[in-house]
Design a protein around this nucleic acid. Sequence first.
DNA 1: CGAAGTTAGTGTCTTTTCTACACTATGTCA
DNA 2: TGACATAGTGTAGAAAAGACACTAACTTCG
Lengths: 219, 219
Amino acid sequence: MVADGAMTGLATDVVVFTIRDQCLRVLLVRRSGEPFAGHWALPGGMVPADEALDDCASRMLGEKTGVRGVYLEQLYSFGEPGRDPRGRVVSVAYYALVPPERLARFADGDDQLAWMPTEALPELAFDHRHIVELAHRRLAAKLDYSNIALQFMGERFTLSELQSVYETILGEPLDKRNFRKRVRNLPCIEDTGEWFRAGKHRPARLFRVTRSDRVEIIK
Amino acid sequence: MVADGAMTGLATDVVVFTIRDQCLRVLLVRRSGEPFAGHWALPGGMVPADEALDDCASRMLGEKTGVRGVYLEQLYSFGEPGRDPRGRVVSVAYYALVPPERLARFADGDDQLAWMPTEALPELAFDHRHIVELAHRRLAAKLDYSNIALQFMGERFTLSELQSVYETILGEPLDKRNFRKRVRNLPCIEDTGEWFRAGKHRPARLFRVTRSDRVEIIK
DNA sequence: CGAAGTTAGTGTCTTTTCTACACTATGTCA
DNA sequence: TGACATAGTGTAGAAAAGACACTAACTTCG
C-alpha cells in the first residue's frame, strides 16, 4: 500500500432532491451514533475498498429510497482536516434527482428519515448544510443550460407541472408563454395526445420525455 | 478512527495549464518510482493527514513551478478501485492556470519536468490523460460564461494576445471585431494608455486587469 | 524617401434570441 | 347558466450575436 500519513477515511454523501408540495426537498437521515448523534445528516457512509465512488453513492441512494437509475452526479469533494471530529475523512459528495412518483413510501412513518424543504433545514451534522447549499446552486445553474429538470418528471406530465418545477428550484416565477415557447421546442419532449383532467377546470395536455434520456446540455 | 475497509490512499493531482507558442500546455513530471516508472504524470502526491485538499494542491503547484497565488479550482475526484495498481487511491484532481510570464525557469534544463502541448501528450501514468481532457473541457466551457481567460494574462497585455488565448484554448479562430466588442465592455479590463511596440507594425494598446480579480461569472 | 509588409484597430447591418404583456378556451360545480 | 379555475396562445420591441472589409501605424528594404 501507499505512504502513511495519506491514509484517510473515505466517504460519500448524497444530496437526494425531490419536489413535493411546491417545495424542493432533501432526504435527511437521523444519526444514531457519535458524533452528532440525533442530528440530521445526509445519507452517506464509508466507501468499501473495492467499490467505485459512483457505485457507492448509487447504492446508498438505493438503500435509503428504494430507487435506482435516477440522475446522479458528483458534486464536490470535502476534505477539511477538521470536518469530522473522529479524524481525517474525505467526503465525495453527490447529488441525485428523484421524481416524487418514484418514492412509493415517502419516508412517512419512519422517524429516522425525512424529506425536508431546502429553505427550512434543521441543523445538520458535519458540513452537510454547506453541501446542500452547493448542490442547490449547481442544480439551479443547470436549469439554465441543460434539460436537467426533466429528471424530476414522471412518465407523463403537463407543462404547468414542469414550469412549477423550474419555479420551485429557482425560487422565482416565470412567464408562462415564454416558458412554453422555450420548452415546446425541445427535441426531447413530446406531446402524448393524452389529457390530464383534475379539478374543475380545463384539462391539460400530457407530455413525455421521448427517449428516456439522460441530461443533455442544450445551450 | 473510522471503520476499516474505508481506509484509502488520498492524493491530489494538479493539471497546471499555461500557454506558450500558441499552445495550451500542461506541466508533466517524470515518475521515478513504480508503478509507471519513467512515464510522464501530473504533478501530485499523497495528502498529509493534517492538510486541506486545496492547500495540498496549491503546495504541489508551488513546489513544481515556484508559483503561488494563481487560479486553482477543484476539478473532480477519481476513485476507480483499479486506477492505481498499488491499492485504493482516491485522487482529488485540481486544475490551475499560470501566466507564462510567471514561469521564470520554463522547466527547460530539467528533464524530469516538461510543459507538453495538450494536443500531443505522451502516454501518461494512471488515468491522467483522462483527467487532462476533463480539465481542458471545463476550461473551454468556462471561456463562454466567465472571464477565466484573464488568469493567463500577465500585468499588461494587448487584445490580440487575449484573443489568441481564447483561440488557443477553443481550438478555433474568432472574429476580431466581435471579440473586441465583447471584451472591451468588460468592467474588469482597463486601457492603460500605454503602447506595446514589437516588430515592424503598428503598436498595440496595453490593457490591464483592473482589480487583480479572481474569476467572475459574467453571464 | 517611398513602396511593401505586418499587425492594430474600427462600424454597420442582419439574424436571432429574450422579454414583456392579456386575453380566450375548456372544463367543473353550485 | 354563471362563476370559477387552470390551460393555452402570439406579437412587438429590445438586446445580443454574427457576418463582414477596410484604414492606420509602424518597420524595413530597395
